[in-house]
Simulated assay, not measured.
Amino acid sequence: MKRVNFYLFIAALVVLDSVLLRSPNLLGKIGLIIYKYHYLRTFPKTLVTVSLVVGIAVALAEAVRFFVQRGIWKRPVGQVVLALLLLAAVAMLVKTAVDFTAWSYSHTGLRFRLGAYLLPAILAVVFGYAWGTLRVPHEPFPESPIMNQQTPSDKTPS
């Protein structure tokens, strides 16, 4: 149930991000036209774009979780893959922060900039959640060698 609630929260963040990315100021709208960001011009296109990006991230995280649960990959391999994906999402967030301090992007409006920051942050949250909740494989409790030995009281006289 926790995973369902988490992914409902992510879905709400996707809608919020789409709303924020769809509302640039006048300079931002001109920039969308100049740079041919046609996938951000209307709310439905923005929602589909953000949903696809986050959906692919969720699919990757769930695939790693599936491989670890089925024993195809060991847990450390899954942790490394998810850590690399998390690192890539954080690098995207840093690159977005650097890009939006430049003159052309810094005048696009506060909502548009917040939406641009929110998308890589959502990806980082998805990969971080998958990394943090990666299941520990069940190891059976070892049997005691004493249990297999017969005690003197168990021996019957013949």
Rank of each mutant, 00 (worst) to 15 (best):
V15D: 00
S144H: 12
P152V: 12
I33H: 14
T133D: 13
L26C: 10
V53P: 01
R70G: 15
S104R: 11
G115V: 05
P140S: 14
F67T: 12
G71S: 11
L119D: 03
G55T: 00
V58G: 03
I72N: 09
V48P: 04
L32P: 08
V94F: 12
V68Y: 05
V80T: 07
V14A: 01
F66W: 08
F6T: 04
I33M: 13
A121V: 14
R41G: 15
R65F: 12
K155W: 00
G28H: 15
L85T: 03
L32A: 12
K29Q: 12
Y7N: 05
T151F: 03
R111E: 09
V98E: 14
V126I: 06
A61K: 11
W73F: 12
S104E: 10
V58P: 04
L87Q: 07
Q79L: 15
S18W: 01
S106N: 09
S51R: 01
K74W: 07
H38T: 13
T42I: 10
L16C: 05
V64I: 13
V98A: 05
Y39P: 00
L118Y: 02
V81K: 03
R41L: 09
P157M: 00
K74D: 15
G132E: 14
E62G: 05
T42F: 13
F112Q: 06
V50S: 00
P152S: 13
Y117D: 07
L60K: 05
T101W: 05
V81P: 02
A124K: 05
N148A: 07
Y105W: 13
V98P: 01
G78W: 09
L123P: 05
S153V: 04
T156S: 00
S23G: 02
V94E: 08
V54G: 02
A124L: 06
A12E: 04
V77M: 14
A116M: 03
L40W: 01
A63H: 14
L21G: 02
A124T: 09
S106W: 06
V125F: 13
R22H: 07
L8M: 03
